[in-house]
Design a protein around this nucleic acid. Structure first.
Length: 366
DNA sequence: CAGTCGTGGGG
DNA sequence: TCCCCAAGACT
């Protein structure tokens, strides 16, 4: 049996820890666009974008989003299609739809002022325990915990907490730790500093303990267990889905696109007509014609298979056979089907997988 | 709780 | 190439 210490929070010099952490953050924090002011709306947008997404990825999206939707009123009045287009490529698109729904609620119910109580802010769509604490502390200076993956990693090492951070129930342990450790003079910087430390120093695989401003407070550093913490069980591997998609053109050079359902994977994004196929079949052109005809009520002619696309999601992989074809006749108007020109297609939000399809088509077309 | 929900970068 | 991951929330 491994001898481990646990819950050493009683032995932590809380004031010393706060001082060392905050001094480091004031000197070393990155110059990030959402740190220019404390506008709760901008803090909110940044926190939603940063969910499961790297800082470097978010930066250009944040700039464009705030330029296009500078205030809560602007985002409230925007078409969802525009919002999704601004989110295109960022992933987890329900974040964008939930953000707009929540912003509309703030606009109507709170007169455009982001609420500053845990109860009210947590009731907003897309605002979970982490985001609630982040907005309350960063925008309003309220000493609430904001426990993300960084904070769990950092505190698991400092306090030698061996609970599995993959389990939802573990977050409560870290929240209660933060409540004991948090600076009431500057909860905003305290929370941001814990995350910044996790991002820059106390990294997952090779933490830079010799550069760490709080290593003197760190149990894992003393015991040499920084590479064993945090404990995190791994996820199981995903399944594969075999699909066929087609770029279908009518005799006016217009392209047929399909709007995905409002729930589930890539909800409300547009795509080229696509259907799941049985790998057991040899998917020849005649069979693909039937697939697209029945699925989309369109009389089509498939010319050739132009390529294959593999796209990996968190929990599944798409293998897409891509076809090129012509539209003979659309049976009737459907709101989720549209014929668009080469110019118009740029206005619609597509998932990255179908951006690949479009790029491949344009290349093959010369 | 366990599965769903994206994407691009890095070891 | 493969796998893990990165400032989580929802069902």
């Amino acid at each position: 049996m491994k001898e481990i210490s646990q819950n050493t929070i009683e032995s932590v010099d809380i004031n010393g820890f706060q001082d060392d952490l905050l001094r480091w953050f004031e000197a070393e924090q990155r110059d990030l666009p959402w740190r220019k002011d404390k506008d709760p709306y901008k803090v909110w947008v940044s926190e939603i974008m940063l969910q499961q997404t790297r800082v470097d990825t978010v930066i250009p999206y944040f700039h464009r989003f705030i330029e296009q939707f500078p205030t809560i009123k602007d985002l409230s009045e925007a078409d969802e299609e525009k919002v999704l287009k601004a989110w295109e490529g960022l992933g987890y698109y329900s974040r964008a739809r939930n953000l707009q729904a929540a912003v509309r609620e703030v606009h109507e119910k709170y007169g455009g002022r982001v609420p500053d109580t845990p109860k009210e802010i947590s009731s907003l769509k897309g605002v979970g325990p982490y985001t609630a604490g982040a907005i309350l502390s960063i925008a309003y200076g309220i000493p609430e915990p904001a426990v993300d993956g960084n904070v769990m990693r950092v505190l698991s090492r400092i306090l030698s907490i061996w609970d599995d951070i993959a389990k939802p129930s573990s977050r409560k342990i870290f929240e209660s730790s933060v409540r004991k450790l948090i600076s009431h003079e500057n909860p905003s910087y305290f929370n941001q500093a814990l995350m910044e430390l996790g991002a820059l120093i106390c990294t997952p695989t090779s933490p830079s303990c010799l550069l760490c401003p709080v290593r003197e407070h760190c149990t894992a550093f003393y015991e040499g267990t920084q590479h064993e913490l945090p404990v995190k069980t791994k996820t199981k591997k995903q399944r594969n889905v075999q699909l066929a998609a087609a770029v279908l053109i009518d005799d006016h050079e217009r392209i047929l696109i399909h709007k995905r359902p409002g729930k589930g994977l890539l909800a409300n994004l547009w795509e080229f007509p696509m259907a799941e196929i049985n790998i057991a079949y040899v998917s020849d052109k005649d069979q693909m014609k039937d697939v697209f005809s029945t699925q989309f009520g369109a009389k089509v002619e498939i010319q050739e298979m132009t390529g294959q696309i593999e796209h990996v999601f968190s929990h599944l992989t798409w293998n897409i056979n891509v076809y090129k074809g012509k539209i003979i006749k659309l049976e009737k108007e459907k709101s989720d089907l549209k014929l668009v020109s080469l110019e118009e297609i740029k206005e619609f939000p597509f998932p990255v997988s179908h951006q690949k399809i479009w790029k491949q088509y344009l290349d093959s077309r010369g």
